[in-house]
Design a protein around this nucleic acid. Sequence first.
DNA 1: CTGAAAGCGCTTACAG
DNA 2: CTGAAAGCGCTTACAG
Lengths: 328, 328
Amino acid sequence: MTKLSIDDVARAAGVHRSTVSRAFSRPEAVKAATREHVLRVAEELGYTMSPVARALRHGTTPLVPLVVPDVINPFYAELAESMTQAAGERGYQLLLCITDGSDVRTAEYLTAVHSLYAPFGVIAPSTRVNFERLRQFGFGDRVVVIDRVAEGSEVPSVTVDSRRGIELAFEHLRGLGHERIGYVSGISGTYTAHDRMTAYLELAGPALVILDGGSDSAASGRAVAHYLALPERPTAIIAANDMTAFGLIAGLAASGVRVPADVSVVGFDGLMLGERFNPALTTIRQPIAEMGGLALDLAEKKAAEGVVDHVVLAPELLERSSTAAPPS
Amino acid sequence: MTKLSIDDVARAAGVHRSTVSRAFSRPEAVKAATREHVLRVAEELGYTMSPVARALRHGTTPLVPLVVPDVINPFYAELAESMTQAAGERGYQLLLCITDGSDVRTAEYLTAVHSLYAPFGVIAPSTRVNFERLRQFGFGDRVVVIDRVAEGSEVPSVTVDSRRGIELAFEHLRGLGHERIGYVSGISGTYTAHDRMTAYLELAGPALVILDGGSDSAASGRAVAHYLALPERPTAIIAANDMTAFGLIAGLAASGVRVPADVSVVGFDGLMLGERFNPALTTIRQPIAEMGGLALDLAEKKAAEGVVDHVVLAPELLERSSTAAPPS
DNA sequence: CTGAAAGCGCTTACAG
DNA sequence: CTGAAAGCGCTTACAG
């Protein structure tokens, strides 16, 4: 079980170290018979190449970090899942790094994985990314962001059209007959969160009501209290994201308010979990599964051609059971 | 932005490479003035040490892989979260690896991270771990498992007393007056899943009903159908895990069956999400937050003293709103 | 306390 | 097609 090196294999196979190296890394550069012999010996010995030695020489590994604030939020979980898949298809191995929103930990992960010679990294931030700091920590611009980024940014990004999403929610709700449509905000800090709120403010018209609970875990409780205290309650509520919608609905239900009989709720994200919620959540779907693959593509494109793309995907309405006509 | 090496710093600071190395790695072995000077120069240059070169020489990194089947299941997500925390406190960096249950991917991750000189790995399996294969892929026994393991296993493990958990559920339900108590199974494959089911079979008595939907995502739909078709329905149901309970409750609600008015449901896991469910889920809590730290401790203990521990934690009842007295 | 040298496990021009 | 040598960026006995 002691660790084997390339020289052990070379000795056992009766060839030089460089031949063993070639047999693995550039098989066509070695006579077929030699190669097979070497490979067989290596196999028998149970030898596997050390990626770190290789990385040190070669200057690259297939390891790609995906940095997320947390993974309990199913949005990040689904993203991680789809990106793991997408990475595998492209010959990478995804390493998920959880930062808890800590800048320090983000930096630590990025330097660690960077100096592991990862070709690039992907960040799904919980706050606007500080590229100055990023650059300091080694990755420089070899990063793709899953959020909107500032105008003219040199960092590729993948995001969803937030305004269009909120618009879809309004269209759906107004189509059902709702006029007073409220909004509950969730985590803030990202451009995405900001954009959704802005879109709501623009589209709400005079009947605007913001149930702002803040961004911690007790937020939905406060939003519910706010709703209950309202002299003229909205008949529908758009939640900034699905998790917020879940908390809101559970809180309303606990206070005897029925969804959608008393009030309709639309989420934003399109988490699979929404299907299992009670009631199943009507929501604006982001194409999470596509986003992972796209992020990887953008990273490769930038590396190869120096092109910085900002992809904006179209959201769509996922109509389930948490919306209905307003109570008459 | 071109990558700096230790020699660049040495040159800039006017010292030998080994002095730079010591300034970073064994500060007490360098005169204070020299050290500060070196460190300052390094800082100005924006130099950070390459973990891979270091690993290659040193034979170890602070990187610890946590291998999970998926992260959409909040159980694994919460585990990952708490272990990231615990790893940080102990000087490690956790790298989350998602396998989708694929043996091949597990192996790939393990070899990759192993050969990155990770000191050990932690596996939260979705099926019984095949240690033969593990050994083949480099990590040998330097692994800790979060599940029960076979008797006499040389691999440390952390798990929760499944039987006691099911017992708690029965005590709670019978205390409320329930007699016909059913069971819905979830993912199978792990010892844990097996143990929960076995405990149910032992404790259910003659009124045993298994609503077995299988382990895919449509499972809860089938379990609901089964429940509805029953001539004599159970008044309470124990779900093999929280996710299954969520699906079950949502499915029941969609069919007009109210929880807990018509039927009580108890989950198993104690996910935070259960608090936001509608109704908030009564469940058997596993101390997930502790499990992460413990797994790390066991790994260190085995490395240091060669001791293989199997820790079995006590579950507890988390009484929320999905259980009540049976309908009269 | 500091420097010079060897070496961790590989790869890659360069000869042959 | 294969071998010998240099070197990736570090660390660590060993001298001094």
